[in-house]
């Protein structure tokens, strides 16, 4: 009985996970990027093109990711590989210790502010 319960639970989780995976649909950047730098539109105060999500860029600009060369394309891809939200597996390329210690229902953004990546208040770190 215990085995059946466990198997059923795992099946449900697998199904949920599979759904979440399959739910990642074909993504297209809203406008052609055309080899332009992300900052062209996303950096606050840029007047070259249209302004788009400057808050995200501003947050990233103060982050350790920026300091360590983890730029927009690292997580979001480029024109042919664009994904509006980074996948957990992209995070795991560098942070597999942390990803391994997370619950399956969690994403990095559950506890970390996108795009400063600082822990949100009130969350107990599962990584310790």
């Amino acid at each position: 009985m215990k085995h059946i319960f466990l198997s059923t639970t795992i099946l449900i989780i697998v199904t949920l996970f599979a759904v979440s995976v399959n739910a990642i649909e074909k993504s297209e950047h809203p406008v052609p990027i055309d080899d332009k730098s992300c900052a062209t539109c996303h950096e606050k105060g840029s007047t070259d093109e249209m302004q788009a999500a400057p808050e995200a860029y501003t947050q990233w600009d103060t982050s350790l990711h920026k300091l360590n060369g983890v730029s927009c394309i690292t997580c979001h891809g480029e024109e042919s590989t664009f994904k509006p939200q980074s996948t957990i597996s992209t995070c795991a390329s560098c942070h597999s210790i942390e990803v391994d210690s997370m619950k399956t229902t969690e994403t990095c953004a559950s506890c970390h502010q996108v795009h400063t990546f600082r822990p949100l208040k009130g969350f107990k770190s599962p990584h310790d």
Partner: peptide, 13 residues
Amino acid sequence: ISTNSSAVAQTQE
């Protein structure tokens, strides 16, 4: 493998 920068590939796991 895409060499066509305008092509949008499906991002999948």
